[in-house]
Amino acid sequence: MIPFDTLVVDDVSRHFGRRRALSRVSFHAGRGTILGLLGPNGAGKSTLLAVLATLLRPSSGTVRYGGHDATARGASLRAAIGVLGHDLFLYPELTARENLEFFAGLYAVRDVRAAAQEALDQAGLADRADDGVAGFSRGMRQRLALERALIHRPRLLLLDEPFTGLDDASAAALGRRLLTLREGGAIVVLATHDLDIAERLLDRAIVLREGRLVETVDRPEALRSVYRSIMSRPDAASGFSRTDGA
């Protein structure tokens, strides 16, 4: 594992054919930061998360993890990154414990059993540990999926809309968990379009629209007014990006 404390995204673009999903995005984040990616659907949040997770190569530009380039060190970098995707990455046929132990094994965690037990306690699922995930509620799955993403204690955590479909209690619990991770010095990158959550949790936010970074917000309390004004702006470029034939 390569330990790193900074994430630097420098002029990253990614296109699919003639559709530009990301256009010259630059930002950085240091240790103990919760950084928000805000924007409407199709703004490029998921593409950006996939690039940060080393799953997608940028068409141009670089991502550096504490001085290491993503393309140079695929596997050892991935050992320090945790990802919670929109689809949760869980096998519904397996039990909670089996899911955790399988991924702990893939990430070469030293004591697989202890790590899985700790994750189950953390998720509040110790009493349901040996039940199939197929029978879990959305909230339980979400908590399990988060602990699965954290099982190897990553330095960088990437979350794609983690609050979708959660009730207030689960959302609050998830928020508290993210704040603990921040205390521990992790970098958390969180894609969301929920402004209430964003205001409470984020240290900084970047606002994406049509693949471009349109605003960086350093004060969470200013977020709401900034976001509103950006979303009400007419967009001149949309005429071109809608014409793709793909």
Partner: peptide, 15 residues
């Protein structure tokens, strides 16, 4: 593909 678990496999540092 169902829960995008192939992606999760590729995200792991495993060979």
């Amino acid at each position: 593909r169902q829960s995008d678990t192939l992606r999760a496999l590729l995200l792991a540092p495993a060979a």
